[in-house]
Design a protein around this nucleic acid. Structure first.
Lengths: 205, 205
DNA sequence: AAAAGAATAGGAATTTCAACCTATCACAAG
DNA sequence: CTTGTGATAGGTTGAAATTCCTATTCTTTT
């Protein structure tokens, strides 16, 4: 990270929120001239670096996280994407001509592997889980995540069998795992037979 | 980002590189006591924030990027996750006792929204797309992606209707969109009737 | 057990950042 | 045309971060 990157990131942070750098500084409760281009190098040409406190206040002012700032600096897209309800997608104003999000009303959704969870992915082979999962699909699962009835999960038995199922009834002693394919009957395991259950967070399509 | 986070990040940065905070400071060419716990709050209890210059020098000293630092602060895993084939998951040696990836043989899969692609997400409402998508699921779609027959896609007609379908036969003049639910017949559109088609990359589960 | 090195705590001096103030410029509203 | 607002440049002052220095604690080595 270089001196230029920090200021570039602050410029982008302001721009992405429809602000000038002075507007961003004001919003953050800082001096309006704090981020002025004229304040980025000292009179003797020495580069001036803002304190992390100033950066932190600017970030909280626009509701951005530190990861968002890193994304701006590194030129990456960031860890989130716009989100709206599927039912609203037909309304006008949500998309531009190319099919990208436009206008307001979009929420943000975070992607997997970027939260606190530890996750990994499994690649599906075979058609036993059609139509939900197809060969080549990748599912992202988190053993940390809480599992509830109805969740799609990956379970491993103490015998070593790994399967993707729908979590059915959980009692004190048994766990029911329902197949995606209704032709197969649900399977019921004693608690001790199941080594672990990991929730499926995402699936490639 | 809070005061605590910055120092926590520096602690982790040092720890991940087998250094103490004073060792990290020395390596960065700073005063060995620059990151001392005793220097993190002033005598009057006021929190002390390091300058971005000090952080930048610490990062370059260990060859880390700003995104790495953000990852340490946010406790994030990064932009990729381990990947193996589902068929191999039953073999021994791929998981530890807690159900996390262990040993070798794991590939890496990158997540959406982190590369050059422009993506966004849609939240599913209603049960018309069961069992593939359920209410509350979020699908991540990319209008940039190439679509092929068999892909799950979101399409918008020029009349404004948005739908998630399976891409069927594409001819020079028509596009067939197949419902996930086999009870509904496929729909056939003229090329001009379809405003855009975006491929579904991921779906939350 | 003794010695050497590293890590840390505490304080003073210095450097540097941030706030404050004023002036200029650009632009929009009346 | 005048007025008002926002953005920026430049300088001064006060506050805060960094360095420098010393002492103490802890670990490792001999």
């Amino acid at each position: 990270m270089r001196h230029k990157d920090i200021w570039n990131g602050l410029d982008k942070l302001a721009g992405h929120n429809g602000l000038s750098v002075s507007g961003l500084a004001k919003l953050a409760g800082l001096d309006p001239t704090a981020f002025n281009p004229s304040k980025r190098t000292a009179k003797d040409g020495r580069p001036r670096w803002p304190s992390t406190e100033s950066v932190a206040r600017a970030l909280t002012a626009v509701g951005a996280g530190f990861d968002d700032f890193a994304a701006l600096i590194e030129g990456k897209r960031g860890a989130s994407a716009p989100l709206i309800g599927f039912a609203q997608a037909g309304n006008d104003g949500f998309f531009d001509d190319a099919g990208f999000p436009a206008g307001t009303g979009w929420d943000e959704v975070r992607f997997p592997g970027l939260g606190a969870e530890r996750v990994y992915a499994l690649e599906i082979s075979g058609d036993s889980m059609e139509p939900v999962y197809r060969a080549g699909d990748r599912i992202v699962v988190s053993p940390d995540a809480q599992v509830r009835r109805g969740d799609r999960v990956v379970a491993k038995t103490v015998e070593g069998e790994v399967m993707a199922k729908l979590l059915g009834q959980k009692t004190d002693k048994t766990i029911e795992l329902v197949s995606f394919n209704p032709d197969y009957p649900p399977r019921r395991f004693a608690r001790g037979e199941v080594a672990w259950i990991a929730r499926i967070l995402w699936a490639s399509q």
